[in-house]
Amino acid sequence: MDTIDQRIIAQLVANARSSYAEIGKVVGLSAPAVKRRVDRLLDTGVLRGFTAVVNPEALGWGTEAFVEVHCRGNVSPDRIRARLEPLPEVIAAYTVSGSADAVVHLRAANIHHLEDALEHLRAVDMIDRTESTVVLSTLLERSTAPGPPGSDTPIS
């Protein structure tokens, strides 16, 4: 991946609906050359896809929490993922260092829905206990990819 690829990625992060011609004007390539590079970035897994960014509050899912999950015994990440996938309020889950086995990001319509979601999470057979932190406001949320190694800035 070179600096042109990084600039193409920055353009896609800023607006994934940009045409190859529009991106080409910014990075100094023809539309077919940009398409070839984007295809290669997809094939190599640098780009994983394109998506719409939705405001969860506009869909009625404005309450969120981060939940530390502590499991009984030694539980594999695959098994944790399998038990969390059926829960629609789980929007992300991460294995972490420290005492927790995982951290789960929940979204719900309101605090009562969040309480129900937490109860469903706690009912999962391998979960021993949870510790929840409800999000009050979002201070910073980046949608850009990090810059190249050694860089302190995003590539946007």
Rank of each mutant, 00 (worst) to 15 (best):
D2E: 11
T3Q: 15
I4L: 03
D5Q: 07
Q6M: 10
I8D: 07
I9R: 08
A10T: 11
A10Q: 13
A14I: 08
A16W: 14
R17M: 02
S18Y: 15
S18V: 08
S18R: 15
A21S: 13
I23R: 11
V27I: 13
G28H: 14
S30Y: 11
S30H: 14
P32Y: 11
A33R: 14
R36W: 06
R40Y: 07
L41D: 03
T44S: 13
T44K: 01
G45K: 00
F50L: 01
F50M: 03
T51G: 10
A52W: 07
V54L: 06
N55K: 04
P56G: 06
E57Q: 08
V69A: 09
H70A: 01
C71N: 09
R72W: 06
R72E: 09
R72I: 07
R72L: 07
S76D: 02
P77H: 11
D78R: 13
I80P: 10
A82M: 01
A82Y: 03
R83N: 08
E85H: 03
P86C: 00
L87W: 08
L87S: 03
E89D: 08
V90E: 03
A92G: 03
A93C: 04
Y94D: 05
T95D: 00
V96E: 00
V96Q: 05
S99T: 12
D101N: 15
D101Y: 09
A102H: 09
A102D: 08
V103K: 04
V103T: 13
N110Y: 07
A117F: 06
E119G: 09
A123C: 01
D125G: 12
D128S: 10
R129W: 05
R129E: 14
E131F: 08
S132W: 00
S132P: 15
S132K: 08
V135P: 03
V135S: 02
S137R: 15
S137V: 07
T138R: 13
L139N: 04
E141T: 10
R142Q: 10
S143H: 14
A145E: 09
G147T: 12
P149F: 05
S151Y: 04
D152A: 14
